[in-house]
Design a protein around this nucleic acid. Structure first.
Length: 279
DNA sequence: CGATCTACCTGATGGC
DNA sequence: TGCCATCAGGTAGATC
């Protein structure tokens, strides 16, 4: 579900809503969402009576600093949600796996029907060295400013097809199936163009499209598709789906040239593109 | 090395 | 009404 714009929306709200709060109690249902830990007790003891500091993000990972020098890491997978609740009286949604209750009142709940997401606590010093997914993440397209010539060098080195490359978290962190399609449309490039075949003008267009599409999506608080599974911290849907140019628009007219948007299969997943505007 | 697959899960949807 | 297949924002690991 959530890609960089959705995770960034949640990060900003978390930073305002839970930073500075102290965790009084932790409730965990089942081991699947905390599978990196040996048992519930080991996970819970690292959180209880700890104060949450600032909340940051690396790609699609949320990092919540704890006062003991540890970090609570959250990855939402396909269907994870972090939801704020006023208190324990609010009914628990189905598939709630972890609940943090704060001393000041209020709760933070982790809900995840498909259970591909996870939470774990690790020492801040070990993040880069011990957690290999985080250690190998590529640059963050919004946080790490880069010249487009440098971006062009990185593209040239990889010699991969553009869509799988944009979705490769080791290359650039935070882009998934929706935003890779939207970025490639904005750049006017096909998903199967080789990354070493781009003219300098195309490199510039791709870089601009990546940054601007993601920034615009953050402004709209992310994309919620038909199932509205993406919800922000307050349970509200995002708004960027109404701005989608290609994603989930099969058969509808291209907003630029009126051609019919087509759906193609790339690496087992659906991709959407305008056959006219993308070359 | 890259490309391609499969597995991990639940739930919604559509065809018959 | 139900049954079955297909699909869904992600990632890791196996296999070629």
């Amino acid at each position: 579900m959530p890609e960089l714009p959705e995770v960034e929306t949640i990060r900003r709200d978390l930073d305002r809503e839970v930073a500075g709060k102290k965790i009084r109690a932790v409730d965990v249902t089942g081991m699947r969402s905390i599978r990196r830990h040996k048992n519930k007790k080991e996970f819970i003891s690292q959180l209880e009576m700890r104060k949450i500091g600032g909340v940051s993000r690396k790609g699609k990972y949320l990092l919540m600093r704890l006062d003991a020098g540890d970090v609570l890491v959250v990855h939402l997978g396909m269907s994870g949600q972090l939801l704020r609740a006023k208190g324990p009286k609010e009914p628990l949604p189905k598939h709630t796996h972890v609940v943090l209750t704060f001393t000041q009142g209020g709760q933070l709940r982790y809900v995840d029907p498909r259970t591909f997401g996870e939470l774990f606590v690790t020492a801040a010093d070990d993040l880069e060295s011990q957690v290999s997914e985080l250690a190998h993440l590529g640059f963050d397209p919004l946080d790490d400013v880069m010249s487009w010539t440098r971006f062009g060098d990185l593209l040239y080195e990889r010699k991969a097809k553009l869509k799988p490359l944009l979705m490769d978290q080791r290359f650039v962190a935070g882009i998934g199936n929706i935003y890779s399609d939207e970025i490639l449309f904005a750049a006017g490039l096909r998903h199967d163009r080789s990354s070493d075949s781009l003219s300098s003008q195309e490199v510039r267009r791709l870089y601009r499209a990546m940054v601007e599409t993601l920034q615009e999506a953050v402004k709209h608080r992310g994309s919620s598709l038909a199932d509205e599974q993406y919800r922000d911290l307050f349970g509200e849907v995002g708004d960027f789906q109404s701005q989608h140019k290609v994603y989930d628009r099969e058969g509808q007219p291209c907003r630029r040239c009126r051609s019919s948007i087509v759906r193609v299969r790339v690496g087992g997943r659906s991709s959407f593109m305008c056959p006219q505007c993308q070359v």
